[in-house]
Structure formats: structure tokens, C-alpha cells
């Protein structure tokens, strides 16, 4: 089994385009592949395939419920909470939990000396399994609107992935903060997708630094090549970073993609090149221990 994450610092560089097309070519070539959409704030991969919905799991976080009859307003739970999720004014016997700030760490329950804190599950989002031709093919993570952190839902989606698949493709959330790290840290190899613009380069550098710091092997795809300038190409050359593929800028691709189409279906050459690329990555980085 191998897990390959498709990521990018900058949003909208073509991460989902690459992830869905890699996945499509793998299925076409009869590989046993699973796609996990880890972009829980804005999941879109499912829209590109003909799927039927399978199991759905609610992802919850335990938040405190304070029994004000038992509470002595000692304030220890407030002191233990590092997320400022408990508000207390002891003289007025007021205590409140801000559920949206709570990370569910359980420190307040440990702190309470008066047995006044119980916990209840609060929904953060859901993880849904989708089938293609009766087989589990896509797992989607999706946070509820208003939930602060996508991390618990992303972790649940990755955990749910059936380890029996040969190849798992992770469509990663954008950026280089927590949600990105949580996704790529589980991968054996990371494909960074960028675009040849100053913004693309700046965000690429940040992603590369992050991946170096956690020692992940990676390579780069330049999407919309021909647009912008050649500073990304130069950066890759100067730093000895593998350029996996260049996808030329084309209005045709952009227009077809906008309709929710799989570009490799229309332009088979792209699918062939992605398949060659992924086969090479697997042969060099296969047999996961993650």
C-alpha cells in the first residue's frame, strides 16, 4: 500500500484537477485505488465522478457540560482550559462554555474537584464513503459550516480508509498549517501542484520548507505552464527539486474542468502522462509503513 498526497500551498492551483485525474487514470488501468478528499472545508472531488453514496459517519468532539448545582465556581476548569472556552465570574455564580472554542481536550473534566463536569458529543462534520461500480472509491471529509478546525474530520477520514487498497490518493487542504500537515504526515510521497506565478512560487517555497522539515519525499507539478513567468522552473532547477510534470495552460482545459469533467477523458494524453508519473512514483516509494 502506498499513500500519495496531492497538495499545494496556494489554493486553486489545480490540486483537485491533478488528484481526480490521477485517480481516474488509476481506475482506468484497473488499479485498486482509493481517493480521500481531505479538503474538509471545501470538498469537491466527488462532483467529478459518477458515485453512489455508501456509509456516512458523524465526527464529534466531546465538550463539557457544567452542572451549576454542583459547581462551586472555584475556577480551576477555567485555569486548565488553554483555549479560553470557559468563561466564569465567580461572585455572580456565572459559568459558560463556548463550545466553538473548545478543542475537546478534557482538561476541564480533570480539573473539576466537584464532579460538576460531564461531556457531550458535538458534531464537527462527517465522513462519507462513496462507491464507484459497487466498490469503495472515494472517502470525503466535510466539516459543518461554522466549525473552526477541519483537523478531527480529516483524521477520521484518513483512519476510515480501508487499508486493503493498494494506492490511496489524498487530496490535501491548501496552505501549510495544521490541516495540511495532518494530511501529508500520513503520506509516503507528496505531489505539490503549483502555478508559474509569483504567488505560486512564494507558496511553493513555503510548502517545500515544510515538507523538508518533516522529511517527506516530494515532487512538483507545474499547472498552467506558459502563463506567468519561469521563476518556478528556475527555483526547481536551482534547488534540485524534481519537476514531475508540466500541464500547459489551456483555455480548453479550464473550460472543460469548469463543467465538472475529467480532463483526461477529453485529453487522454494528460491521463497517460499522469499514469506514467504515478507508476514511477509508486515504484520508487512503494510499500508504505504509514
Amino acid at each position: 500500500m502506498i499513500k500519495i498526497a496531492v497538495a499545494s500551498g496556494k489554493g486553486g492551483t489545480g490540486k483537485t484537477l491533478v488528484a481526480t485525474n490521477i485517480f481516474y487514470t488509476l481506475l482506468r488501468n484497473k488499479a485498486d485505488a482509493l481517493l480521500i478528499d481531505c479538503d474538509a472545508e471545501a470538498p469537491n472531488a466527488v462532483a467529478f465522478f459518477n458515485v453512489s453514496q455508501g456509509n456516512e459517519t458523524e465526527v464529534t468532539r466531546m465538550v463539557p457540560v457544567i452542572d451549576t448545582n454542583k459547581c462551586t465556581f472555584c475556577g480551576k476548569c477555567h485555569d486548565y482550559c488553554n483555549y479560553k472556552a470557559i468563561f466564569i465570574i465567580p461572585p455572580f455564580k456565572i459559568i459558560r462554555v463556548f463550545e466553538e472554542l473548545c478543542h475537546g481536550c478534557g482538561a476541564c473534566s480533570v480539573a473539576c474537584m466537584d464532579d460538576a463536569i460531564t461531556e457531550k458529543p458535538v458534531s464537527q462534520g462527517r465522513v462519507t464513503s462513496f462507491n464507484i461500480d459497487e466498490r469503495q472509491a472515494i472517502i470525503e471529509s466535510r466539516i459543518n459550516v461554522g466549525v473552526m478546525s477541519p483537523v478531527p474530520v480529516i483524521q477520521a477520514a484518513i483512519k476510515l480508509a480501508n487499508q486493503n487498497h493498494d494506492i490511496i490518493i489524498l487530496d490535501s487542504p491548501p496552505g501549510t498549517s495544521c490541516p495540511f500537515i495532518q494530511t501529508v504526515s500520513t503520506a509516503d510521497y507528496v505531489i505539490l501542484v503549483t502555478e508559474p506565478t509569483p504567488f505560486g512560487l512564494s507558496d511553493l517555497k513555503q510548502s517545500v520548507d515544510t515538507l523538508k522539515s518533516i522529511k517527506k519525499p516530494y515532487g512538483v507539478i507545474i499547472n498552467r505552464a506558459g502563463l506567468g513567468n519561469d521563476s518556478v522552473q528556475n527555483y526547481l532547477k536551482d534547488n534540485d527539486i524534481e519537476l514531475l510534470l508540466e500541464i500547459p495552460f489551456s483555455r480548453e482545459i479550464a473550460e472543460f474542468y469548469s463543467t465538472g469533467g475529467i480532463v483526461s477523458e477529453k485529453i487522454p494524453a494528460l491521463g497517460d502522462r499522469l499514469f506514467q508519473m504515478i507508476t514511477k512514483i509508486i515504484s520508487l516509494n512503494g510499500n508504505s509503513s504509514n
Partner: peptide, 26 residues
């Protein structure tokens, strides 16, 4: 981008929000 914590922090209490979208399914 997104709809999580940093987005909520950006819009909470702002006077107006301009949402930039593009004509794709995503």
C-alpha cells in the same frame, strides 16, 4: 480560502464581505 477558523476570524465584525468565485462546479 476555506470556511474554517481563519475565515471566521476574518469576517466576524467586518462591515462588508466580498466573495470572489469562479464559474466552475467547485
Amino acid at each position: 480560502p476555506g470556511i474554517g477558523c481563519p475565515v471566521i476570524s476574518t469576517i466576524t465584525g467586518a462591515d462588508k464581505a466580498v466573495i470572489v468565485t469562479e464559474p466552475t462546479i467547485s
